[in-house]
Amino acid sequence: MAMDFSYKETWLHKINPSLKLLIMVLLFIHLLMIHNTNILINYMIGMLALYLFFTGHPWKRLLVISIPFLLIFLTSSTSMIFFGKGEITWAKWGLVHITEESFFRGLHLGFRGISFAILGIVFALTTRPVYLFYSLMQQFKLKPKYAYSFMAAIRLIPLMIEEMQTLHYALQVRGVQGERGVNGFYRKIKSYSIPLLSQSIRRAYRIAVAMEAKRFSNHGNRTYFYRLGFSKFDVIFLCYLLVIIPLSYVTATHFPYFSITDVRFGS
């Protein structure tokens, strides 16, 4: 199955998943409060280092995954660059009005988008869902019925993608691909989604019944096959951030890339 990627386990994999998630959310909130592009760029470089050197995935894969980053940069920045508020006009064609402020604000949004993307992908590449949900049960007291439902459902996704291939063949044989127009398009969407959805719903339902047949219940005192605690790797991760974040502030003050320090309008 295509989703079965092999990788080398690194220290990022060994961080407690709940802690990793919590830190990701905190970093997200923190990032939203950074309005200085200089800091943001340094910050981003710090996160990029994690992505490039510590996920344990081969270079080629990392490269392929990072292609959408560029797209993210564009999607996050273009509207703001073209249509954002600002007073120092650089260019104006009809509705498009590029100002210095809007340009830097757009740039800032682009870098912000990339930073989120990097953080997210680092998490995704270094966290096994099963460990994440075990950890969420143990550290955040997530109810087992939610955690195991997630794990069971994630298991079904590759299965579904395989079925999609068969479905694709079957529909090709029936001639569904050939139909044109809005009706044809609607039928096409329907002929993919209805079989996949109904098959998945039935399967999920059966799995739930099978789980209960195996005496699954919701009480919290389970004995866990995986115990996820904390280790020195959590400390390493925190230390990394505690160095990188202040460092990005310091270098931004002393070696700024741009003179603008707050991209918000009217600040």
Partner: peptide, 27 residues
């Protein structure tokens, strides 16, 4: 019930895959 939760989550994950694919298109 467990059946409700599991069915909800599988539906959600199917759309999660679509959400993921929707990203580049949106871009």
């Amino acid at each position: 019930k467990l059946t409700d939760i599991l069915v909800t989550i599988i539906i959600a994950l199917i759309f999660g895959v679509i959400y993921k694919l929707w990203g580049p298109l949106y871009g």
